[in-house]
Amino acid sequence: MMKHWICKAWKENKSFLIFIALMLIFRSAVADWNEVPTGSMKPTILEGDRILVNKMAYDIRVPFTHISLFQRSNPIRGDIVVFDSKASGKKLVKRIVGVPGDIVELKNNVLIINGEQLSYELVTSNDTAIDKMEDLLGVEHFIRVSKHGSPLSSFRSDVIPSGYYFALGDNRDNSADSRVIGLVPRQEIVGRSRHVVLSFNYENYYIPRKDRFLQKL
């Protein structure tokens, strides 16, 4: 009886089921979108953003796994990556600031990479936070720091070993990143993001933010 029902359901919904299967495979191995629920990447990424994730940026993988069939490239400094963090037990979105062989240091929210201090340009400031433009050795992007600093404002890494990356949130004093969870293993990185697909304002009845539609990161 059950077998008959399954066969009938398959015949009646074959096209739809194939479509669903292909869509799941596509989202698993080709491209997907991820909701960003926290402000750890502010001001670059806001709570409520749905970011497009290119899952073929670095690897061609077996769908629904982390098994790489072919490595296309490796993350570089400045890339915004999505990774399945075993250390935190969830999917995270951060920016790569250190690659294998680098020594990353942070002094009062000023990054020093391999002994070279990065340059910063003030953008905006209020009573609690400062937004700056950070020049990450040729990759310019916004960061946010607290005026009062935090325990995360300073650190120093050892030489980053092969197969690992140092990732930070752009909201430097409010991000559980490599300063908290440690280095990011290469195999945990599932893709790269460069655009917002759409965004919902959680503080205003989830109304879509028109200015965030297809916004480049």
Rank of each mutant, 00 (worst) to 15 (best):
N34F: 15
V36P: 03
P37M: 06
P37Q: 10
P37E: 12
G39N: 12
G39Y: 09
G39I: 08
G39L: 09
M41Y: 05
M41F: 07
M41I: 04
K42S: 10
P43E: 06
P43R: 00
P43W: 10
T44W: 05
I45Y: 11
E47Q: 13
E47I: 03
D49T: 05
D49V: 00
I51C: 00
I51W: 04
I51R: 01
L52Q: 06
V53F: 06
V53Q: 03
N54V: 09
K55I: 10
A57Y: 06
A57V: 03
Y58N: 08
Y58R: 07
Y58P: 06
I60N: 09
R61M: 01
R61E: 00
V62E: 03
P63M: 05
F64S: 08
F64D: 09
F64G: 08
F64I: 02
T65Y: 05
T65K: 01
H66K: 15
H66L: 14
I67Q: 03
I67G: 03
F70G: 02
Q71N: 13
R72W: 10
S73L: 04
N74G: 03
I76P: 01
I76E: 15
R77H: 08
R77S: 07
G78R: 11
D79R: 08
I80H: 08
V81F: 03
V82K: 00
F83H: 12
F83D: 02
D84L: 10
S85G: 09
S85C: 07
K86L: 13
G89P: 07
G89N: 09
K90A: 14
K91Y: 08
L92I: 14
V93L: 11
V93P: 01
K94H: 15
I96K: 01
V97R: 00
G98R: 00
P100R: 05
P100N: 05
D102I: 06
I103H: 11
I103A: 02
V104N: 01
E105W: 02
E105V: 13
K107M: 08
K107N: 13
K107R: 15
K107L: 12
K107P: 00
N108M: 06
N108I: 04
V110R: 14
L111Y: 15
N114G: 05
E116M: 11
Q117N: 06
Q117Y: 07
L118K: 12
L118D: 03
S119V: 12
Y120A: 01
L122V: 14
V123I: 15
N126S: 14
D127R: 11
D127Q: 14
D127P: 00
T128Q: 13
T128L: 11
A129L: 09
I130R: 10
D131E: 14
D131S: 13
K132P: 01
M133L: 15
M133R: 13
M133F: 12
E134Q: 12
E134D: 07
D135H: 11
D135G: 09
L136G: 04
L137C: 06
E140D: 02
H141W: 04
I143Y: 08
R144N: 04
R144Y: 09
S146Q: 01
S146D: 04
